[in-house]
């Protein structure tokens, strides 16, 4: 699968804001239930509105994971190499063991998708028995973020990776895309996903080359990004 660049296409007209992607991600990647009321989700679902008063108003839900940029500003900002652009399909990895918690990457990221662990993770008594072996438990004082469920890429089509038959050899699918009830989140080789679709990226003018793209029929969304 050399030369493959993984990415996502999110159909905003199909997202109902059900939050299943968020909880699937939390469970897969051992994100504790709550972290002092601060944002801890690796994928957020925000409600976007067109700014018009009723009845001209319109709204949609915008899922936002790490964009796994082609030119990630976070990588350049990290002083210790804790976040790197991987050769494995262009995934921007995050190594919490190496992270010194300076948060330079958070400042550099224009999308606000990186999370700082303000406290040591804790689960209600006994619930840590349901931690998965797919992601290490991160201590306080480090930055974490969406990894495109890279552990599934490592596991391959071994059953527990969540890969489907159509993903082919070496293919995989992220936890959020797998759980999405409407199929709004599609994951795969980005060039294939984008073929024949009029997609757009968030903050494209920043030149970071995000690998997460969006499609919608709503002109006000496309115009505003």
């Amino acid at each position: 699968m050399s030369g493959v660049v993984w990415g996502m296409v999110i159909d905003l007209d199909r997202c109902t804001g059900c939050g299943v992607c968020q909880s699937a991600c939390r469970l897969e990647n051992n994100i504790p239930p709550q972290q002092g009321g601060r944002d801890s989700d690796w994928i957020s679902v925000a409600r976007e509105v067109n700014g018009q008063a009723f009845p001209e108003s319109d709204a949609l839900f915008l899922p936002k994971p790490c964009m796994h940029c082609e030119h990630p500003p976070c990588v350049a900002a990290c002083p210790v190499g804790a976040t790197v652009k991987s050769g494995q399909g262009g995934i921007v990895s995050q190594n919490p063991a190496r992270c010194i918690g300076c948060r330079a990457c958070m400042k550099a990221c224009p999308y606000g998708v990186r999370r700082f662990t303000w406290t040591d993770p804790s689960w209600p008594r006994g619930m840590d028995a349901t931690l998965t072996p797919f992601a290490s438990v991160r201590p306080k004082g480090v930055v974490e973020k969406c990894t495109f469920c890279a552990h599934r890429l490592v596991l391959g089509n071994s059953g527990v990776s969540g890969a489907r038959e159509q993903d082919g050899t070496g293919g995989f699918v992220t936890a959020c895309a797998q759980a999405c009830p409407t199929g709004a989140i599609e994951f795969g080789e980005i060039a294939t996903l984008l073929r024949g679709r009029e997609a757009f990226a968030l903050l494209a003018e920043q030149g970071t080359g995000p690998q997460v793209h969006y499609v919608t029929r709503r002109a006000w969304v496309r115009g505003g990004k």
């Binding site: 939050g19 909880s23 699937a24 469970l27 209600p124 008594r125 349901t130």
Partner: peptide, 14 residues
């Protein structure tokens, strides 16, 4: 596809 209630079946044991 799933719902949050179904996702919770494992960790709700605790």
């Amino acid at each position: 596809a799933l719902s949050p209630a179904a996702q919770a079946e494992a960790y709700s044991l605790y």
